[in-house]
Design a protein around this nucleic acid. Structure first.
Length: 512
DNA sequence: TTCCGACAGTGGGGTCGCAAT
DNA sequence: ATTGCGACCCCACTATCGGAA
C-alpha cells in the first residue's frame, strides 16, 4: 500500500468531526490492507509508530526539505527506513539520523511530509487514536467492539490484536487471555472535587490513600518478576527492591497493581520529584537505590494463582490482595457504606494529607477492573490551592487554538513591586475565555517575538494548583504543579495579587 | 429530549541519558 | 563540563460525539 493513501485517509479523518465517519474511513482502509501491511497500517492510522520513539523530534523534522513531485513511497518502505533510523546510535548518530530523515522527507510529497511529521512527533491531530482505531478494526472484521477492546487491553497493544484479527480471523481473539508476564493497560481514575461528591456517586466504597509516586504493575511467575509502568514500559532492572519484595510474598504467580514510592528515614513520603528521579535512573541503579530506596504499595490484584480476577468486584479482588500482601505493603484505606459515613471519609482524607500524601481515591466496591479505561468507579480527590497571579505574557496556541493567545506566563509579586514568573498554564480555558483573553491581552501587549506576546503586568487571574515544587527554571526557585485558570479577576489590581512570600509561607515543606 | 461516558486535544514541569559543543 | 534534545514520568481541563436514560 502506498503511503499517500494513508496520508489522504488521515486528512479525511481529520476533516470530519463525526466519530462514526472516522470509524468508517479507518475500517475501509483496514479492509484493503494486505497482510504484510497490517502491522504498519494499523499503528500508523492510530497515530503511532510500531517502532515507538525514534530519537527524532520536532527540531530535526522542522528543517525544510523539498517535497517529491509524485507519491512513490510504500508503507513498507517507510517502515523499513524508520526501523533503520531507530537503530542508529553512538557518536555522529544525531547527524546520521537527521540525514536519514532528510532523505525520507525528500522522497515524500507535501501531504506525505505532513503525515510523517505528525506520526513521528506523535501529534497526528486527526481526532482518532487507539480507541477510534479499535472501533474501525471491529467494523472492518465484523467483531463486536467490546471484544476487540478487551483483547487490546489484555495484549497491551492494538497492533498485535489487529494482526491476528486481520490475518487469522475472529477466532484468534481467544488467544488474548490475561497472562502473567504480559502487562495489561492499567485502570485509571476520574477526578471528584470532594470526598462527599465521590461517596454520593459511588455508594458503598473504599476510600484509599493516594500516594504521589509512580504506578507499577508487578508480575511474578515463580522466580521471575517483571515490573511495568502505566504505559507498559518494563522497568524491572531499575527497581531491584521491588523484585525482592515480590519474591518474599507467599504467592508464586500473581499480577498486582500499586504505586512505587520512596519514604525517608522517618517514614514520610519523599517528594514526587525524588521518587521519579529514582525510577528514571537506569545507569547506576545501585547508588540510586542507596540514596533513594523505594517501596511498593499495592491496592489491587489482577491475577492470583492463574485465576483472572479482572471481572470480579473490587471487594473480592481486594480480599485476594489481602491474602497475599501484608498490610504494610498495601495502601491504607477505610470502608464506607454510604453518605452517612461521609464525615469518616473526610477525616480519613485529612489524616492522609497529614501523613504527607497526595489525597485519596474513592473506589466503588462492586466495580470490575476496567483495564485501559478511565472507569467512573475510581474517583480521586486532592486538595486544591488557589492564588491570584498576574499575567506577564501569553503564547500563541496550536491546532484548534491557532490564532488564540493560549499559554499564559504567570507571575507573583516581589517585595519591590516587580513580578517573578512562577510557570505557565493553558488549562481550564473555555473557547469563550480564549477569545476574550486574546483580545484583552493584545490591548496590553508591549512586545512580541512572533510566538510570545509580552504584556503590561496588569491583568489578575485566579489560578488553581496542586502544590509547589522546586524549580531551576524560574527565578523564585519554585513552580506551581498543575496550574490551571479558574477565572479572571478584573476586580483586582496587580498590586493586590499574591506575593512570592505568601506562596512560600503556604508551603513550608518546599525549600526554594 | 437531555444527560453523561468516553475520547481527543492542548500542552505544562521535572528528570534522566545521550550526543554535541 | 555544559548545553540541547528527546523520552517518559506525573497531570487538568474542555469540546465533542453518540449512546443511555
Amino acid at each position: 500500500m502506498l503511503l499517500t493513501r494513508l496520508a489522504h485517509v488521515s486528512q479525511e479523518v481529520a476533516a470530519t468531526s463525526a466519530r462514526s465517519r472516522k470509524i468508517a474511513l479507518l475500517a475501509e482502509l483496514f479492509r484493503d490492507a494486505e497482510a504484510d501491511d497490517v502491522p504498519i497500517v494499523i499503528p500508523y492510522l492510530a497515530g503511532r509508530l510500531p517502532q515507538g520513539r525514534l530519537g527524532i523530534g520536532w527540531k530535526v523534522l522542522s528543517r525544510p526539505v523539498e517535497p517529491a513531485p509524485e507519491p512513490t513511497l510504500t508503507v513498507r518502505e517507510v517502515d523499513a527506513r524508520l526501523t533503520a533510523l531507530g537503530k542508529v546510535s553512538g557518536p555522529g548518530s544525531q547527524a546520521e539520523r537527521a540525514r536519514l530523515v532528510g532523505e525520507l522527507m525528500g522522497a515524500a510529497t507535501a501531504d506525505e511530509q505532513r503525515f510523517l511529521f505528525g506520526l513521528i512527533t506523535g501529534e497526528v491531530r486527526q481526532g482518532a487514536l487507539d480507541a477510534v482505531a479499535v472501533e474501525g478494526l471491529a467494523e472492518a472484521t465484523g467483531v463486536p467492539a467490546t471484544d476487540v477492546r478487551r483483547a487490546v487491553m489484555l495484549a497491551g497493544s492494538l497492533q498485535t490484536v489487529a494482526e491476528s484479527l486481520l490475518t487469522e480471523g475472529p477466532a484468534s481473539l481467544d488467544r488474548f487471555q490475561l497472562t502473567v508476564g504480559r502487562p495489561v493497560l492499567p485502570m485509571l481514575a476520574h477526578s471528584a472535587s470532594s470526598v462527599a461528591e465521590a461517596v454520593e456517586k459511588l455508594g458503598a466504597c473504599a476510600v484509599e490513600e493516594k500516594l504521589d509516586g509512580i504506578r507499577v504493575q508487578v508480575h511474578r511467575d515463580g522466580n521471575v518478576v517483571r515490573l511495568y509502568t502505566r504505559t507498559l514500559d518494563d522497568i524491572t532492572d531499575r527497581l531491584p527492591e521491588l523484585t525482592s519484595a515480590a519474591l518474599e510474598l507467599r504467592g508464586e504467580r500473581f499480577i498486582l497493581d500499586g504505586e512505587v514510592i520512596s519514604f525517608d528515614a522517618d517514614g514520610r513520603p519523599r517528594s514526587f520529584q525524588e521518587t521519579a528521579g529514582r525510577v528514571g535512573s537506569r545507569v547506576d541503579v545501585a547508588t540510586a537505590a542507596e540514596t533513594v530506596p523505594v517501596s511498593p504499595v499495592y491496592f489491587d490484584a489482577l491475577s492470583v494463582d492463574g485465576r483472572d480476577l479482572l471481572d470480579l468486584p473490587f471487594a473480592e479482588r481486594h480480599a485476594e490482595l489481602a491474602q497475599l500482601v501484608p498490610e504494610p505493603m498495601r495502601v491504607r484505606r477505610t470502608l464506607v457504606s454510604g453518605p452517612e459515613d461521609i464525615p469518616a471519609a473526610e477525616a480519613f482524607l485529612a489524616e492522609t494529607l497529614k501523613r504527607g500524601h497526595e489525597g485519596v481515591v474513592v473506589k466503588g466496591l462492586d466495580a470490575p477492573y476496567n483495564a485501559g479505561r478511565r472507569g467512573a468507579s475510581w474517583l480521586k480527590v486532592k486538595p486544591v490551592h488557589t492564588l491570584d497571579l498576574v499575567v506577564l505574557a501569553a503564547e500563541w496556541g496550536h491546532g484548534r487554538r491557532t490564532g488564540k493567545l493560549s499559554n499564559l506566563h504567570l507571575g507573583a509579586r516581589n517585595p519591590d513591586g516587580s513580578f517573578a514568573m512562577l510557570g505557565k498554564t493553558f488549562k481550564g480555558m473555555t473557547d469563550a475565555l480564549l477569545t476574550w483573553q486574546t483580545e484583552r491581552l493584545q490591548e496590553l501587549a508591549v512586545e512580541s517575538d512572533g510566538h510570545v506576546v509580552t504584556v503590561r503586568p496588569e491583568l489578575v487571574v485566579e489560578i488553581a494548583y496542586d502544590g509547589l515544587q522546586k524549580s531551576t527554571r524560574y527565578p523564585a526557585g519554585v513552580t506551581l504543579r498543575f496550574a490551571r485558570v479558574v477565572r479572571y479577576r478584573e476586580d483586582k489590581r496587580a498590586e493586590e495579587a499574591d506575593s512570592v512570600e505568601t506562596l512560600l509561607a503556604a508551603h513550608p515543606e518546599v525549600k526554594a
